[in-house]
Design a protein around this nucleic acid. Structure first.
Lengths: 254, 254
DNA sequence: ATAATAGTGTCTCTGAGACAATATAGG
DNA sequence: CCTATATTGTCTCAGAGACACTATTAT
């Protein structure tokens, strides 16, 4: 005996199909938005304006707009742009967590993305209409120290953040991802410093330069940056360049 | 003006919380179950017994049992065990696809896992009670040739399969994953052959053996397998061993 | 000239690929 | 012994790390 009715055709099946009769888990999207400034990897937090966890900090996220979002990635991008006012040069799906206990409202599934933003030109929407009319009451960057932030986040967001940092750090060992964290123009030393901040250790500059040269993702602007000492060549990211995957990891780190 | 009511406490919020008033996307889990036999990577397919796509082949999947499944992974394992009758030694979350168009019933999100099963001892539940009482009318293995199978699957399952194969092939370049596809006892040549089948190219045996030795995941059983020619040492996977990650990829492949 | 940082030369080491050489069984 | 397959020896090569050395600017 089949628990479902029998239909003679797909057309007939749809005539009788009522989506509301199936109870479904709640589904959301959360994005770990990274940037680098003040010599630290930073993550964007928002303060919840509603229950549950009202007034607690969380990652940037929200529910799918079933009318207007065509894909999960649309949801992630929409929320990211609402909070930062910019489009991200890099967005990657990280993982999905779904279980009975992560949300006090019941079975909940969240798909986690991570985004990399250049630190320049980010104007947080702290006091704009966007914020005051939304479910969020504040936005801020929080620096990551020892793979953690000092805030205790709502839901399982500290865990999500930890896993996302782990993914980022691991991927930095064999990709050119940090290039997406750089401003328009930067020196090779700047880029190396960003790698070093994420990996939390110093790198050999010769070895580092060899890798970046091999990746062939940068072009010199022709300009130099003049500090107090020897000027350094400025580079920009080439256009329409894919992330480079190295065949060998940076070694020494886990 | 906030679109939500104002509550004075979290307790009060929950007293008024009704999950059914939010429309939610459909959420499912699909698992790409791989094994290797007949010199080919094989994927498990089931034939749908219900609309939509009645009588078409699909990957193994289904909806979350909100009562009994504690996590998404529980759902994946439950479905896998229903169809194969065994527990998988390796299950990894692959990615999540969510969009408006993948399911004719509307907005749908599916989290895709992939599993690796040893080819020995799999007794498909083709004619058991499990099958006849479920929404599935048949189960079979389909060999992968040129990253594709000959069947045209329901929903976006051909696309999902293609991406899962890509992930598996890529990961095989720097991990010991194929070890999970091996029977209880096997020779190094057997393992190399499985690598070769997945990567679809031959490998250098010296180089391959060096890698496996370095990974330190196998122990000799002491026995040898006697074919017609020189006997080969039999190995088994050490217990409680994690997947080994090599610092360098197998080269030459993409 | 000196200090400080940018950038290069070059040696060593590890592990991948190539391929020749050796080992062990059945016939 | 011959053949086929298992297993090892060993050479070359790419790219990582180490570290000394050179280059360019301000002071």
């Amino acid at each position: 005996m089949n628990k479902n009715q029998n239909y003679n055709s797909e057309t007939e099946f749809f005539k009788n199909y009522d989506p509301s009769k199936f109870y479904r888990p709640s589904t959301s999207v959360d994005t770990v938005i990274f940037t680098v400034f003040d010599l630290a990897l930073q993550v964007l937090l928002v303060k919840r304006g509603e229950y549950p966890f009202k007034n607690q900090w969380t990652l940037v996220g929200g529910f799918i707009d079933l009318e207007n979002d065509q894909t999960l990635e649309d949801t992630a991008k929409r929320k990211l742009e609402e909070k930062t006012g910019v489009k991200t040069p890099y967005l990657e799906q990280c993982f999905t967590i779904g279980n009975k206990i992560r949300d006090p409202r019941g079975w909940s599934v969240t798909t986690v993305y991570f985004a990399l933003l250049p630190s320049e030109n980010i104007q947080l929407k702290t006091n704009s209409d966007d914020i005051t009319s939304s479910s969020v009451s504040a936005v801020k960057w929080s620096p990551i120290k020892n793979n953690k932030i000092k805030e205790s986040l709502a839901f399982d967001h500290n865990y999500i953040l930890e896993k996302a940092i782990e993914r980022l750090r691991n991927k930095v060992l064999y990709t050119s991802l940090p290039a997406y964290l750089m401003p328009e123009k930067f020196t090779l030393r700047d880029l190396q410093t960003v790698y070093e901040i994420i990996l939390d250790r110093t790198l050999e500059s010769k070895s580092f330069r060899r890798r970046i040269e091999r990746a062939n993702i940068l072009e010199p602007t022709g300009e130099t940056r003049q500090d107090v000492k020897r000027p350094a060549q400025l580079y920009r990211l080439k256009e329409n360049i894919d992330t480079y995957f190295f065949l060998r990891n940076i070694e020494g780190a886990t």
